[in-house]
């Protein structure tokens, strides 16, 4: 049993390592930075772009050592007021609440979320706004709004709990 379990844990680590290099991942799952390096923008001014790409690579490596990898990205084809976001390791727990609260924003014309495939731990969120705001700003506001709502509910729950306990002990 012990041997078996340990072996499994080691395997999982290997998989993690493979994920970091992303060599065999499909292009859609690869780190955005890669497509940028290979992107056609480079061809326009090769010397300069190469430098930029090199710096970015270094930055990304540093980041990975300290922090968890970027969990939100903007999908290609997005503009300022109409964007699709891809969240890694998120699901209905965040998706539905976020969708609701973003739709509450008067500057937002449309917001919806989906989990494109059940075996990929990803959640996509589409935001289309009026000219008064941008999709990213609406997303940031939505996240902040839920956080504030959480504060209110947590405080309320704890006050009511204290009240309930006080009443019980009377």
């Amino acid at each position: 049993m012990a041997g078996k379990t340990r072996a499994r844990a080691a395997e999982a680590e290997e998989v993690d390592q493979a994920d970091i290099t992303m060599e065999d991942a499909p292009p859609s799952a690869q780190k955005p930075g890669y497509s940028q390096e290979e992107g056609s923008a480079m061809q326009e001014d090769e010397g300069e772009e190469n430098d930029v790409a090199g710096e970015e690579e270094e930055e990304e490596e540093e980041e990975e050592e300290e922090e968890e990898p970027q969990r939100v990205r903007i999908l290609p084809g997005s503009t300022e007021t109409a964007a699709s976001f891809e969240f890694l390791k998120e699901g209905h727990t965040l998706g539905n609440a976020l969708r609701y609260i973003i739709m509450k924003n008067p500057g937002v014309e449309f917001c919806a979320y989906t989990i494109p495939h059940p075996s990929e731990d990803k959640m996509n969120l589409r935001i289309q706004t009026y000219d008064t705001t941008t999709a990213t700003a609406a997303l940031a506001k939505g996240l902040q709004d839920i956080e504030d709502l959480c504060d209110v509910v947590a405080d309320e729950f704890w006050t009511q709990r204290d009240k309930f306990n006080a009443a019980q002990n009377k």
């Binding site: 955005p32 497509s35 940028q36 970027q70 990205r73 940031a140 996240l143």
Partner: peptide, 27 residues
């Protein structure tokens, strides 16, 4: 939420003026 807000913040400064990965211009 805090993790995502943090991630967004360092990515693009919120107003869609990204120099981060996968920005439409870079593509």
């Amino acid at each position: 939420l805090a993790g995502l807000i943090h991630g967004l913040g360092e990515n693009d400064g919120m107003n869609g003026d990204y120099d981060g990965p996968r920005s439409p211009d870079a593509m």
